[in-house]
Simulated scan of single mutants.
Amino acid sequence: MGFIADALSRVKPSATIAVTNKARELRAAGRDVIGLGAGEPDFDTPENIKQAAIQAISEGKTKYTAVDGIPELKQAICEKFKRDNSLTYETSQITVGTGGKQVLYNALVATINPGDEVLIPTPYWVSYPDMVLLAGGEPVFVHADPKTFKITPEALDKAITPKTKWFIFNSPSNPSGAGYTRDELKALTDVLLKHPHVWIMTDDMYEHLVYDDYEFTTPAQVEPQLYERTLTCNGVSKAYSMTGWRIGYAGGPQNLIKAMAKIQSQSTSNPCSISQWAAVEALNGTQEFIAPNNETFKGRRDLVVSMLNQAAGLECPVPEGAFYVFPSCAALMGKTTPSGKVLETDTDFASELLEAEGVAVVPGSAFGLGPNFRVSYATSTEALTKACERIQRFCASLK
């Protein structure tokens, strides 16, 4: 047995971070690289939020806070849940963590016993399975339709066993951008009503990043009978362009929230005090920048979908939300690059694309579904146009 814990042998490093780092290294070495790997808005944090943080510093709000969030932020979160999701929580039912990832992880560590199963629809955000493994549980994958990237009620029902503890639900989705309609979500919650031992963990991080006539809903909103066994998770990272501020939050049953606070008290303690005051302003302040930002994202989405569907061998569905597309490159498997490499996997596709054209994308296999790849369109229209032209050129060069 080595010095490093055996549990870590079950865990993979984040594929999205790996792609971003590789692109950064190539750029530092002088290569012209366009990185489409990062799930991060390119808009600056709105001015009113930055000013709230500056004011907090000026007023000396730089000390330790309550472990899982200041009362003012918990109250703002309660009001947000009521305003946007018709969900009523007390501040004792709210937790604030250092980013959405910590909130999810705390919940899993606080509840999972060895052998417990956690249902995760594919394609999934890369961290879900590894967080489950670190918590001592077993990820169980519910396979989505590869065209719509959504699971059916029948597939969910079939996957549930007596060992199932959680169902993780992410809509709009990272990596596909797929969003479930209210009726589609109701069909899933009907299944969950039949299995009272299964808890629901939502990841609503892309709630406000939706397009066309798509309307966001969350499970406890669609089916109030699930309220007592749902942890509704969200954060300020995406809609408010606050990725680096690291504030995530959740509402749920008081006993679970207390257990999560116990985990946090012995790991990181409170989130950054300044970031918390900035998040109060994000939730309570003007929301007027969200709609124009979404219009920009929608224009980029339409550009990328159109250009990728013009690339030989790619098939790119139109997502309902988030800022990702998840095209299939299945038709390119078995093709040969000009350098003589035969493409056997989506990892081959991504590696050869980066080498030949300097475009960094994330292989779909990292998200549990391939052969696909994820493109983040949270970057400039100019960069996206250039990147898609390079992808078209690369696909045309395959024999």
Rank of each mutant, 00 (worst) to 15 (best):
T45C: 04
E117R: 14
V109K: 15
Y105E: 14
A76D: 01
S58P: 03
K63F: 12
P172A: 01
P129F: 07
P129M: 06
I70Y: 08
S171N: 02
D68M: 08
N170G: 08
Y89R: 04
T65C: 15
G99M: 11
T161W: 14
K150T: 03
E90W: 05
F141G: 01
I49G: 01
T148N: 06
F149P: 00
E117I: 09
I151D: 14
F169R: 11
C78E: 11
L156S: 13
V109W: 09
G136T: 13
D145F: 03
I120G: 00
G99H: 10
N170M: 10
G99D: 09
P123L: 05
N48I: 08
P146T: 07
T161V: 10
T45K: 00
V132R: 10
E47C: 10
L119M: 12
D68F: 07
V142D: 08
A110R: 07
P121I: 01
G69Q: 07
I160T: 04
A53S: 06
K158R: 13
S173P: 01
I77V: 15
S58H: 01
K163M: 12
P71W: 02
W125A: 14
H143N: 11
I49Y: 09
Q55Y: 08
V126R: 11
N106K: 05
S58M: 03
V140Q: 13
T152N: 10
Q102S: 05
N106H: 14
F141H: 04
L87K: 10
L73M: 06
F81V: 11
S171R: 00
P123I: 05
V103A: 02
S127F: 12
D157I: 01
E47P: 08
G99W: 09
K50I: 14
V132A: 10
E154H: 10
P46E: 12
V118K: 15
F169T: 06
P139E: 04
